[in-house]
Every structure is written in C-alpha cells, then in structure tokens.
Design a protein around this nucleic acid. Structure first.
Length: 425
RNA sequence: GGAGAGGUGGCCGAGUGGUUGAAGGCACUGGUCUUGAAAACCAGAGAAGGGGCGACUCUUCCGUGGGUUCGAAUCCCACCCUCUCUGCCA
C-alpha cells in the first residue's frame, strides 16, 4: 500500500513513478481529493467527540453531587446524533479511500528502467552458453512423452487442461528438484525451512497484494472466503502479519516449498503445451523480511541464491531488470531470471525476484523496532522463486536431452535421483 | 458438525454502565541506596490516526463488526478464534 504521507510530501516524485507504470492522472487526483476531504471530516468529528467526552465527565460529576443534569443531557443527545451522522459519512469515505489506495500499485525504485512493456526490460547479465546440438532438439513435452514420464492427456481427463501427471522417474525428478533446492537454500544459504498452508484467507491475500485487484487470477473456494495460494509468498509473508519484530530478528529468511494455484485467466491459448503454464505447479519460494536500509543489497543476494540453483544444474540463463511498465503490482523492483529452452531457442522466466519495500508490510502491518522503545517501523519484504520446479524440469529435459531420446541427469541431482539418466524402459 | 468454557496492555490477571488507557503482579527502562550486583524504594513505559515548526495536543483502540445509551471493557445481536468434551475422518 502506498504511504499516504509520502504521497502528500513527495507528490511530484510519486506521481511520476506511478505514471511511469500506467497509473492515470484521474486516479492520482481522486486520491488527493479523498485524502483532503478525509482529513477535514476527521478533525470535525473529533472536535465534537471531545465536546462529548468533556460534558459526559461533567454530567457524571454533577450526578454525584446531586445536581440537575437534564439540560446537559438534552444538549448531548443532539451532539451525539450529529456525531453519529458524521461518523457514518466518514466511515463511508474512509472505506472508499482505502479501496482506492489498495488498488494503487507500488512506486518503482529509481534504478528501474522506464518503459512500457516486456520489450523495454534490460538484460543485466547472462550465465553460460547455450549448448549446441548436432541434432534437432525436441520440446520437453515430446521428450517426456517418449520417456513416458509426463501424462497431460490423463490429467485433462481427470481434471482439465493445464494440469499434468508426473510418472515414474518424471515424478522422482520433480521431487528430487524440490529436495535439492530446499537443501541448498537451508544448508548453504542459511534459510529457515517452512511448509505453509496451501489455503489462505482474504486478509492474507490483501496483505501481499493479490487482492482486491486480482481476484480473477486466483482460485477461490466456493462458499468460503478462502483462496488457494498462488505462491508460498502469501502464507509465508503473512506469517508475521500484525507483528512488531525486534531488530535482532532481522533479516528473516524463509525457504518454503509449496504447490501453487493460478487461474491463468487471460492467458488462453498461450503456452498450451508442456509444463510452462499450469493451473497447479510446484515452487520453492524464498522470502525475506529486512530493515529498509538493507533491502536492495539483499535483493541482489536473493537473486544470486536463485541463480546458484541454475548454475549447479548447469542451465544457461540471463537476468533481466523489469521496466516500470512490466513490474508486478506490489513490486518496487524486480529481476526476472530466464532459463534457456533449446527447442524454442528462447529464454523463459523461471524465477522472479522482487523487492516490495514497505508496500506489503504496510498492508499487513508488519513492523519492527530498532531499539526496545523505538517507534515501530515497517519492514521491507522481498521474495523470489528459487525456483519454479515444473519449468526447471522442462529446462533439464530440453538442455540435457540426448540424440537417442534419453535425458542425462545433472550431477548434483544424481544422489537424489539415484540414476544418471532417464532412458526409455 | 454438536455441547460447554473463554478471548482485557509484552505476559499473567481484576474489572459494579459515569475521572478505567484500564487495579494488582511479572517482565522492562531510569533513579535512590550499594565498592559492584541483588533486594528494597521511587519514577517511567502501548498502538493507530488527526492538528501544530515545535514543546505539545486531540480522537480512537479491552477478539471483530453492528446496536442500545447523554455516556459502554461493562448491556443486546451477529461473526471470528482458542480450549475441553463429542461425532465423522487422512
């Protein structure tokens, strides 16, 4: 959530940042108006309430002394009615104000490239060279079909499109990757492991910014106010919601594996084949809660931890800095890590690492104290995929495929897989 | 799902519709005392929002949301959560 005070005090800067990512002039003006009216009405009702408190005190004293209080009570009836009226108006205004505020995206960090779309994202670095094949590399769904390790048709029958059954060594590969990634982050990178609920309530979804604006993108459980998690970011970040942490607790670093559920409304026809875009997929997520002054340096650290997974797996990738127009709603800055997919000859997103600054913390009242008696301040939250598991399987199948249709297993995974190759049985 | 009990400050725990932001205790901070510490004594200390350059000041907050009342932690209604018993069940 946007800081209204920052909005007032650094109006020009905030306005520019927001319009760089597509917030309209009207939306900004509306917020200014609502904020002004809101503050006027607050001081009006508060004056009346002060009057009510003072006179109530007086009535109590007079009653105790046996004095007459009828005229005061009469006056207070009127004041009370007035308060009720104004309070009702104010409540309506405040909920409109909040609704509006919740629908305004985060302000991009000054280092974010200005641009309108994906086209304007900036490449930061690449790692390793795409392998050259002396045969025509197949897309992962064809490789998997020949090896009988993924079954999309059965999933379509049992559930619907954009689902999959993993089978045999395919299922083991998915599981091996989850364990490999979790072990790496916990043992080498110092994260605390967490296994969160896969269903969360509305407040949690508001806290991390999925709601109220993007209800169409998530699965809601009928006859309830529960949602399937679109990412472990939601339960894990909300774990500390409405808490005041002490400075010694920071930074908090959590690694969480979860299944993720997304409705993929609006992406009909895109990536219909293979593992790239599913309604349900597995992901290992890294989540940070930090002091504000460390968040940007930790964004680099977080990104490097995600990169490390790809390096150990030997998968070529590049790191992109998303431009203002391509940033997610809650993010102030995002690096996308894109892995090389030989069959299409392109890089595809496999991790997205973002700094949300205090945007999520403000929505979810997630604070810390520098000193035992200091005023609470909002923490900064960050998260990134470390990595999306299904897409990693796709990348391994494609990058490690052999001419005979088999797929070699990257060395670091062999202890988890207990084989060095998936071949046709 | 059913029955009962309960939700008050960092924690424990009082609370009769009218100086209760809230007794008391623990923990915490500062001071006195002490060579130092402990004990004892004294004092201080919550959050959000509004106004003011500031000292400061006002409003709200006793699970959440409504209601009754001149006035609600206290009365009424709904909901949420926790605990105990119970039903079904991986």
């Amino acid at each position: 959530m946007l800081d209204v005070r920052r909005f007032r005090n650094e109006f020009d800067q905030v306005k520019e940042g927001l319009s760089n990512r597509g917030v309209t002039q009207e939306e900004i003006e509306k917020l200014t108006q609502l904020d002004q009216r809101r503050r006027e009405w607050i001081s009006e009702t508060e004056q009346l309430k002060n009057r009510r408190n003072v006179v109530s005190q007086e009535i109590a004293t007079k009653k105790r002394n046996g004095e007459e209080t009828n005229s005061l009570i009469e006056e207070m009836k009127e004041v009370s009615n007035k308060i009720k009226q104004l309070d009702d108006q104010l409540r309506e205004l405040e909920s409109e104000f909040e609704r509006h505020l919740l629908s305004i995206p985060n302000v991009p960090h000054s280092s974010v490239p200005v641009g309108l779309s994906e086209e304007d994202n900036v490449e930061i670095r690449t790692w390793s060279e795409p392998r050259t094949f002396d045969f025509e590399p197949l897309p992962h769904w064809e490789i998997a079909d020949k090896l009988d390790i993924l079954d999309f048709e059965a999933a379509a029958k049992v559930t619907g499109s954009r689902f999959v059954f993993y089978k045999g060594l395919g299922a083991r590969l998915e599981r091996a990757l989850i364990n490999f990634m979790m072990d790496l982050h916990v043992d080498e990178h110092g994260y605390e492991e967490m296994l969160p609920p896969l269903i969360v309530n509305r407040d949690s979804m508001i806290g991390t910014g999925q709601l109220p604006k993007f209800e169409d993108d998530v699965f809601k459980i009928e006859d309830s106010d529960y949602f399937l998690v679109p990412t472990a970011e939601v339960p894990v970040t909300n774990y500390h919601r409405e808490q005041i942490l002490s400075a010694d607790d920071l930074p908090k670093k959590y690694a969480a594996y979860s299944a993720c559920f997304r409705s993929e409304a609006g992406s009909a026809g895109r990536d219909t084949r293979g593992l790239i875009r599913h309604h349900q997929f597995n992901k290992v997520e890294l989540v940070y809660l930090t002091k504000p002054e460390h968040s940007y340096e930790l964004l680099e650290e977080l990104t490097s931890h995600a990169e490390k997974v790809l390096q150990l797996l030997g998968l070529p990738y590049r790191v992109m800095s998303l431009c203002s127009g391509d940033l997610g709603f809650s993010a102030a800055k995002t690096y996308d890590i894109e892995v090389w997919l030989p069959s299409s000859g392109t890089y595809r997103e496999i991790s997205s690492c973002s700094n949300f600054e205090d945007f999520q913390a403000r929505r979810s009242m997630l604070r810390f104290r520098r000193e035992p008696k200091a005023k609470p301040e909002f923490v900064h939250t960050l998260n990134g995929s470390g990595l999306a598991v299904g897409r990693t399987v796709a990348a391994i199948l494609e990058n490690y495929q052999n001419e005979d249709g088999s797929v070699s297993i990257p060395e670091v995974l062999q202890p988890y897989m207990r084989v060095d190759k998936i071949a046709k049985s």
